[in-house]
């Protein structure tokens, strides 16, 4: 395995372009090194992006924040502005793994690993985050929701990599939240994850909402029907009940060691309601 640690995006893209074999990007390494250790992948080239300065920072941009691909969970959690703007996304990132994992794991890594159970992704999808993709022909921005195509697979083309995530500015009277269900209190992969972002008007009626679900389908789901259950309501008990039903109805999970279809579907209904309640509370703060 060839190991390279370029110091610019261009150099990284050139390395990717020049390698005909299996390539892996190394940011936090919390997924790829496990795959390496257990023989699930044998890359010909590993490109460490942590020495690219542009990928190491969190920058304010148009009232939102751009988060570099090599920024770790601990840095995201420590960023007061980010935490204030999108607390749900920050919490989702912080739920991933242990303190040790937080020292390394990145938002972009969580996204590009393309697991349907990735904690940060439903929160980012609810937040309408975009990711910036660099490649041989420059860069392009796409919604975070469009990056994963199937478990472990992305829409990235040859010699492309994700350089950053952009979390947009937030409207007044809006709030976001993310909750996941795990059997323990820490260290588990989400059995279900629910991200909700909503905007209320001055009369206390929900103007906009985005509801995203993790670990209940092959990809993270953005459920319009669930959002519709909130929009136009006061996010009261009846609306939350409708939200639960709509979210549960959208689930098409699998049975596996982490949960059954039946359990995942039920928990989605419970969790999405609790998440919306937190988002609502935040919109009023």
């Amino acid at each position: 395995m060839r190991f390279e640690a370029p110091t610019s995006v261009d150099a990284a893209i050139k390395l990717l372009e020049g390698e005909p074999g299996v390539v892996r990007i190394l940011a936090g390494g919390t997924d790829v090194l496990v795959q390496l250790r257990y023989g699930q992948v044998e890359p010909d080239l590993m490109v460490d992006i942590k020495r690219i300065a542009a990928m190491r920072s969190i920058d304010e941009e148009d009232g939102g924040y751009r988060i570099g691909a090599a920024v770790s969970g601990i840095e995201i959690g420590a960023h007061a502005g980010l935490r204030k703007l999108w607390p749900g996304v920050v919490e989702a990132m912080e739920l991933i793994g242990s303190t040790q994992i937080q020292g390394r794991a990145t938002l972009v890594g969580n996204l590009c690993n393309a697991s349907p159970a990735a904690d940060s992704v439903p929160a980012m999808v609810a937040a309408e985050a975009t990711c910036r993709i660099f490649g041989p022909n420059g860069h392009r921005d796409i919604p975070v929701h469009n990056l994963a195509s199937a478990p472990g697979e992305t829409t990235l083309g040859r010699a492309e990599l994700v350089g950053s995530i952009y979390l947009p500015s937030r409207r007044p009277n809006s709030g976001d939240a993310y909750l996941r269900f795990i059997p323990r209190t820490e260290m588990d992969i989400a059995v279900v994850g629910t991200g909700v972002s909503l905007e209320m008007d001055l009369d206390g009626v929900c103007k906009n909402a985005r509801v995203a679900l993790g670990a209940v389908a092959a990809r993270v789901l953005l459920v319009d029907e669930a959002a519709s259950a909130l929009i136009g309501s006061r996010v009261d008990a009846a609306a939350l009940e409708n939200l639960s039903h709509a979210a549960a109805a959208a689930c098409s999970p699998i049975d596996d060691k982490r949960g059954t279809k039946e359990f995942r579907t039920k928990i989605t209904g419970v969790l999405v309601r609790r998440t919306a309640q937190i988002a609502l509370q935040r919109s009023q703060e």
């Binding site: 323990r184 209190t185 260290m187 588990d188 596996d256 982490r258």
Partner: peptide
Amino acid sequence: YIYGEDGKLQNPGFLDYRIPVASD
């Protein structure tokens, strides 16, 4: 211990063989 239909152990690691952690 969770076995699949194929008789293979599904959770041979501390990620999914869930021993108590301090916060539990």
